[in-house]
């Protein structure tokens, strides 16, 4: 099932909303994440800079799963859960069934001395570390569980 903003699952409890987006591993599916984030941003009154940070981290995480995790297989599952933690963070948990890969343990691409050396890709991990308040990884039963947390203003 693919959730659009109109089909977002309601909060289980008003104090701890839990929302889920289910995608398949096609690049064109990833565009469904942006109206979902927009709905979340409205719901939680997320400032523009935090929203930008959420979007860039989700784009990097999801596109890495499609490109590198599933290696272009277009019908594999990706789920994204969102909840507001007790610490006032908006926490996104992304699960896939791709081979295990811990981005938290991966090296960032090195700095480049010239544009000729610059690899167009390879910036995703660096960007997630910069823009997410917290990035953690754990093995999931059939793949990976990546958690991205963003502090919300009090």
């Amino acid at each position: 099932m693919i959730c659009t903003p109109a089909a977002i699952m309601p909060a289980a409890r008003p104090s701890t909303p839990a929302l889920r987006l289910v995608l398949t591993s096609r690049l064109e599916d990833l565009g469904l994440a942006w109206p979902w984030v927009e709905a979340l941003a409205d719901h939680y009154h997320i400032p523009a800079q935090t929203r930008f940070a959420i979007e860039i981290c989700l784009e990097e995480a999801l596109s890495n799963i499609v490109h590198h995790g599933y290696r272009g297989q277009g019908d594999r599952p990706i789920t994204v859960d969102c909840e507001l933690s007790g610490a006032g963070e908006l926490v996104f948990t992304i699960e896939d069934e791709a081979p295990r890969f811990d981005p938290c343990a991966a090296d960032e691409s090195p700095a480049h001395a010239s544009i000729e050396e610059l690899k167009p890709g390879g910036q995703g991990i660096r960007l997630m570390r910069k823009f997410a308040g917290r990035v953690t990884w754990a093995p999931a039963p059939n793949g990976n569980r990546l958690t991205l947390a963003f502090a919300l203003p009090h």
Binding site: I56, S63, E116, P120, L127
Partner: peptide, 20 residues
């Protein structure tokens, strides 16, 4: 309004061509 790594790629590759 927004720039991700795929957007960076769309700037870097043409820039590299011009510079080359």
């Amino acid at each position: 309004e927004f720039l991700g790594s795929m957007g960076l790629r769309s700037i870097v590759i043409p820039a590299r061509a011009v510079r080359s």
